[in-house]
Design a protein around this nucleic acid. Structure first.
Lengths: 194, 194
DNA sequence: CGTCTATTTGAATGTACTCAAAAGCGGTGG
DNA sequence: CCACCGCTTTTGAGTACATTCAAATAGACG
């Protein structure tokens, strides 16, 4: 149950057995069905989720009812509404499951306790967020400098497993295009412009 | 010289006089002329910069020679190529000045020393990057869900000072549109679509 | 002033979107 | 095992937002 996350943590910081136990005790195992919404826009997003099985996504629902996927989280990733979690504000985005999923949830107050009790976790989360920041930045660059076709190709190369695993419509929402456009791109009916 | 950054740090963590001195000693003051490039794509981006006066920007130069601005950094902000800095890889982006600028630079090895010597800084940078992450995420959402006109309006509301201070072409590069399009938007000749 | 750069304007073009409908796929129940 | 239902993907036609390229105008700086 906890082996995946402890292994993940140990890649960055070394924990004593006591510290590992303390950490694990703060994690709440959750079993979720496919399509289950765990954070609704407007909710207090008190939890961040570490996925041990399945896949979740964070998305924004715009005024036209369209979904825009911010990130996918398969096994070994964290997900949540960072804005709401960090600022204790109502969430702006939604988080749901794309498959039956098992996750370990940490509550905001426990996260804060953890950082105080075991300051090594400051480093762990700093490194984690730094990496996520860099990944996001590259996405912004790609969105601005590449056409939809090239973005799709890059996606398939960067996340070949997700390409197989997820419905195409979800990938379209991530790429910032409509499912119709992605379909045409795949059929080679839209030029794959550099 | 150091008062701005120490004040900034003190909003998140409390430093002893010794710690503050140690920190300040690792910062290298830089005086930069307008349009000076401090990080070139391909460089080892060994420094992160804290701006005390003036304004810098990070941008990506694509294969067509077009500039895409990733972020602006006026006074009291950090900037650099986080990817290159964190991973010790050649930078993918460029950083230059938009005005005559004064900055405090920290070198990668000193950053690492600092985190080891004064672990409180792990917390400081975690919080900093968390906030930057959230800001970036909101930008991704806006880019996907709003038209160029509305993104421009939001920019003027969120950064009224930058709107005044920067050339319009720079704002266009940040919004992900051409200067021509921004000009038309401002003239009301492109619909400001929701 | 004169030069260089930034901004504006115009005309034609293109990428991706919208709306609508058809086809494909998967699961469920008869 | 096949038929039907619901959901995803594909296809088509027309449209819209923003781009490109070119030229004119305006602003800033020496």
């Amino acid at each position: 149950m906890y082996s995946l996350i402890l292994q993940n943590v140990s890649r960055h910081i070394k924990l004593s057995a006591d510290e590992a136990d303390y950490f694990a005790a703060l994690l709440q195992p959750k079993k979720l069905r496919k399509k289950q919404v765990v954070i609704h826009a407007g909710d207090d997003a008190r939890y961040e989720y570490f996925i041990t099985k399945g896949c979740m996504r964070q998305y924004y629902l715009d005024n036209n009812g369209q979904e825009h996927t911010i990130m996918f989280a398969p096994e070994d990733w964290w997900i949540g509404d960072m804005y709401g979690f960090v600022y204790s504000q109502p969430s702006l985005t939604m988080v749901d499951t794309l498959e039956d999923t098992e996750a370990l949830a940490i509550e905001r107050c426990d996260y804060e306790k953890l950082l105080t009790a075991v300051p090594k976790f400051e480093r762990f989360f700093r490194v984690l967020i730094q990496r996520a920041f860099v990944t996001q930045q590259r996405r912004i660059i790609e969105n601005m400098s590449l056409g939809a076709g090239q973005r799709y190709i890059n996606f398939t190369q960067q996340y070949p497993e997700l390409e197989q695993r997820l419905p195409l419509r979800q990938i379209a929402y991530y790429l910032g295009i409509t499912p119709e456009s992605l379909s045409r791109i795949r059929a080679g009916k839209l030029k794959k412009v550099e």
